[in-house]
Design a protein around this nucleic acid. Structure first.
Lengths: 334, 334
DNA sequence: CTGTTAGCGCTTTCAC
DNA sequence: GTGAAAGCGCTAACAG
C-alpha cells in the first residue's frame, strides 16, 4: 500500500507529528532529525495525501476554471497562462468544461464545489447570468475574465482593442469595413462591435448595417465561412473585414480563398486574439493580441488577495496590442 | 460556513450516519426519512466534501491525463473525448501539462499522485521512457494512448493510417511524395514514416531520403513552414506532401501560399489528425482522422477493469479513417 | 525540540 | 431502520 506519515514515523522512531513538521520544513525540529526524516520519506517513496491535507487544513489550494471547452485556441492559451500563474503561487487548476447546453450547468460546477476550490474563474461568457446565479448559492468567490458585470472582473478592453484594429484599417485607407461577429458570446462580441462602430464614427463614417453580420456558430470556423459568403454576395462588398476572433477569421479566409479573392490585395482581413496558429496562415493574419499573461497574473493576484480576506471589488480593463502581419493592406483602387 | 452532514443530521433530528445513508440512496433507510433528509440537504445547500469522501473511501474517482500542453488541437480534442467518457462513468479528469522540459517531469506528476488518481493516461510521447520509469515508482496503473511499449497501450494504427493516406496520393497518380515529420514525437512520427515508406515500397517506388524532412518544432506550425521551404528548394520538388500532423500541414500550406504554389493544382497536401479547423482552411485539408471517441471509450473501459482488479495486459491498435477534402488532387502533368 | 491529543467530514462496520 | 463508534491521513494546538 501507499506509505503514510505514520510509516515514516515508525521507521524513524519518532511521532507522526514530528514527521509532519519535518516535511513541512518547520523550524521547530532539529535539523538532524529533519534531514533524516526527509531522506527517509524520499527513500520510502512517500507522497502526501492531498485529501487528508485538504480536509484538515480546510483549504484545497485549487481554483476552478470554467470554460466552454478545449476546442477553441484562445481559451486554451488563456487557461494555460492561468495554470502557469497558479503553479507559481502553489495552486492547481481544476478545469470544468461547461457545455453550451444550459441544463448541464449545475453538473459542471458541482465537482468544483465538491473539491472546495477556493475561487472560480470564468473564462467565457455564454449565459453567464445563469451561471452566476447558480454560483451565488455557494460562498466561493467568482472572478470573471472579461469585462462583465460582477464584483471581480479582469478583462481586455475590448472596445479600445477593436478601435485599435479598425483604426489600422482606416489608416490604410479602407472605407467599407465589415464586421463579422458571433451572437453566442454576447459581451465580447458587443464590446468589439461597439469599438468597431465608434472607430468608424470617429472618422465621420456611417456604420452600414449590411456590413455587420453576426453568426451563431459557437466555434467560429463555420460562422466565419458563411458570414464571409454573405458579405461577398452584397452588391457592394467591403474592402476589409474585422472578425470578432481568429477562428472566425480563419473560416472567412478560407471562404475568400475558395472565392478566388486574394488577401490582402483584394480584401484585408483582421482577426482578434492572436491565436498561435494565426501567423502560419497564408497570409499571416493581422490580429489583436490580448494580454494573456497579464490577465492570468492579475487573476491569481486577485484570487490570493480574495482568499486572504480582502474583499475589495476589483475591475480591470487591460489594453490589447495590434499585431500587424500580412492580411491587411491598403484597398485596391478607388 | 459550509454545511456538513452533521448539520443536516441535527436539523433532521437523526444521526450523521443516517444522513450519509439517505444521501447515498441506501435501501437501509426508511423512504420517508430518506425523502426528508434529501430535501433538507437540498434546501440547506449541502455539497459533499470530496476530500473527506476520498479519504474514507480511499478512492478519488479521478484519473490523471498527462499531455504536453493545451496548445495543440488534437490532444485537446482527445482529452475532451476522454473527459466526456470519464464523466459518463462517474470519473473526473485531472490534467497535467508536462512541459517539454525534462527536469519538470516530476513536478508535473506529483500533483497527480498526491490526488491519488486511480490511473494515469499519457497522451503524448516525448521522452516517455523517463516518465514511465518515474511513474513506475508508484503503484498507479499507466495507460499509454498510442502504440508504445507498455502493458496498456491503446492507440491508432499509425502505420496502417499512414499507408491509407499515402495510398490515396499514389492512387491519384503521384510518384514524388514527400514526408514531413517531427523528431520530437518519436513514436507517432516513426510509425507514420514507416507506413509512408511501406506504401511507396508496395508500389515499387524507392523512398527518396531527400523527400523526408524531419523538423524539431514541438508545435508544428513553424516546422511545417520551414520544412516545406526545404522541399521547395529541392532540384526536383515533390508533387505531394504527407505531413505527420495537421498543424504541420497548416504551416506547410502557409509556406506554399507564400511561394505562390497552388494547392492542390500544383501540389497535393495531406495531413493527419483531422483537427477541427482543418476543414476551414483553403483548400479544406485532406487528412486522416483518428478514432478519438473510441480511443477514449476503450481507455475508460481499461481504467475501470484495471481498478476492479483485472490486470490483464491490453493492447489495441485502432484503424484510422481517410478524410478526403480539397487539398489532394492528381499531379499536374507528367 | 518532541510527543500527546483532538479533530477535519465522511463512510462503514457493528450493535440494538 | 437507526445510532454508536471507529478511523481514513493529516495538521495544529497544547504540554512537557
Amino acid at each position: 500500500m501507499t506509505v503514510t506519515m505514520e510509516d515514516i514515523a515508525q521507521a524513524a522512531g519518532v511521532h507522526r507529528s514530528t514527521v509532519s513538521r519535518a516535511l513541512a520544513n518547520s523550524p521547530r525540529v532539529t535539523p538532524a532529525t529533519r534531514q533524516r526524516i526527509q531522506q527517509l520519506a524520499e527513500e520510502m517513496g512517500y507522497v502526501p495525501n492531498a485529501a487528508a491535507r485538504d480536509l484538515i487544513t480546510r483549504r484545497s489550494r485549487a481554483i476552478g476554471v470554467v470554460l466552454l471547452g478545449l476546442t477553441s485556441p484562445y481559451p486554451c492559451e488563456l487557461v494555460t497562462a492561468i495554470d502557469e500563474a497558479a503553479l507559481r503561487v502553489g495552486y492547481r487548476v481544476v478545469l470544468s468544461r461547461r457545455s453550451d447546453d444550459a441544463g448541464r450547468a449545475l453538473v459542471n460546477i458541482k465537482p468544483l464545489i465538491e473539491q472546495r476550490v477556493e475561487a472560480i474563474v470564468v473564462i467565457e461568457t455564454p449565459s453567464v447570468e445563469q451561471y452566476l446565479s447558480l454560483l451565488s448559492h455557494y460562498d466561493v468567490p467568482v472572478i470573471l475574465l472579461y469585462s462583465g458585470d460582477s464584483r471581480f472582473c479582469i478583462g481586455t478592453d475590448n472596445v479600445g482593442a477593436a478601435k485599435l484594429g479598425v483604426d489600422h484599417l482606416l489608416d490604410l485607407g479602407h472605407k467599407r469595413i465589415a464586421f463579422i461577429g458571433c451572437s453566442r458570446y454576447t459581451i465580447e462580441n458587443d464590446e468589439r462591435q461597439t469599438g468597431y462602430t465608434q472607430a468608424l464614427l470617429n472618422r465621420g463614417l456611417t456604420p452600414d448595417p449590411h456590413l455587420m453580420v453576426i453568426h451563431d456558430d459557437w466555434l467560429g470556423g463555420e460562422g466565419g465561412r458563411s458570414s464571409m459568403h454573405k458579405l461577398l454576395a452584397l452588391p457592394q462588398p467591403p474592402t476589409a473585414v474585422f472578425c470578432w476572433n481568429d477562428e472566425t477569421a480563419l473560416g472567412a479566409l478560407g471562404a475568400l480563398g475558395a472565392a478566388g479573392i486574394r488577401v490582402p490585395e483584394d480584401m484585408s482581413l483582421l482577426g482578434f486574439d492572436d491565436m498561435r496558429l494565426a501567423r502560419y496562415l497564408h497570409p499571416p493574419l493581422t490580429t489583436i493580441a490580448q494580454p494573456k499573461e497579464l490577465l492570468a497574473e492579475l487573476t491569481m493576484q486577485t484570487v490570493l488577495s480574495l482568499i486572504s480576506g480582502n474583499t475589495a471589488t476589483r475591475k480591470e480593463k487591460l489594453p490589447a496590442r495590434l499585431v500587424v502581419r500580412g492580411s491587411t493592406a491598403p484597398p485596391k483602387e478607388r
